[in-house]
């Protein structure tokens, strides 16, 4: 499985770190900024290439013709849209995902047949998971410098949070519930958002609060008899 990621920002970097753990996966990260490419290369090695992921001639040299998946994750929607279409229509890449920075561009991406993701890492990883079914772990992304992680978790039947709205819940301090994904799609949560079993939550969590949060969304273990 060969994957090209255009854009070496935090999301691209997080994905590459996840994927490079897996056997038989090869990832190339394409980064436009020479400085960023060089510092990424110092950190994660030769999978990083300095170049323009929307340039056809350059994509050819990094093996776009044999790529199984191209993910365009730059902060520039124009570049992402072009990369996605170049990958699909010029190089015939079977699966292409692009990040949409301005949500108003999303209908256009959809109309052009480009699978897009609006949010940051959680949803990106969910998309990748759907593509890579053998990759069962729900990946987390670490924001090391801030001591934070981005986590995704599913609300279980009987969990403490199930059936309650966010306003009434006491989350550990520092926890940010960023996105709640229900049957109708993703929503930015408000105090009135009710968490239901099956809902997926993407949250920014201080490292030491992760266990508490996890306990709140999972079903309690059966009480042991004394």
């Amino acid at each position: 499985m060969y994957i090209i990621v255009s854009g070496g920002g935090n999301v691209g970097y997080g994905i590459a770190l996840e994927l490079q753990q897996l056997p038989d996966y090869e990832v190339t990260i394409v980064e436009l900024s020479a400085n960023r490419a060089s510092s990424l290369r110092d950190e994660i090695g030769e999978m990083v290439v300095h170049g323009d992921g929307s340039e056809i001639a350059f994509l050819e040299t990094v093996g776009a013709s044999r790529a199984d998946l191209v993910i365009a994750l730059t902060a520039d929607d124009g570049a992402n849209l072009v990369t996605a279409q170049v990958a699909r229509h010029w190089f015939k890449v079977p699966r292409v995902i692009a990040r949409v920075n301005d949500p108003r561009n999303e209908p256009l991406f959809r109309k052009l047949g480009v699978d897009s993701i609006v949010s940051a890492s959680g949803a990106v990883m969910a998309q990748i998971e759907a593509t890579l079914p053998e990759h069962t772990l729900i990946p987390l992304m670490a924001l090391e410098s801030a001591g934070l992680q981005i986590v995704t978790m599913r609300v279980q039947e009987g969990a403490e949070v199930a059936g309650r709205n966010l306003r009434d819940l006491q989350f550990p301090s520092g926890v940010l519930i960023t996105i709640v994904i229900g049957p109708d799609g993703a929503e930015t949560p408000s105090g009135d958002t009710v968490l239901r079993p099956g809902h997926e939550i993407i949250a920014v969590v201080p490292k030491d609060a992760e266990d508490t949060l996890r306990a709140m969304v999972t079903a309690p273990l059966p009480e042991e008899d004394d």
Binding site: Y2, E26, T28, V49, E60, T61, V62, G63, S65, R66
Partner: peptide, 13 residues
């Protein structure tokens, strides 16, 4: 001794 075959990205490593 180490010999490195540098493989272009157009083909699998």
């Amino acid at each position: 001794l180490l010999y490195v075959i540098q493989v272009p990205r157009t083909i699998a490593l």
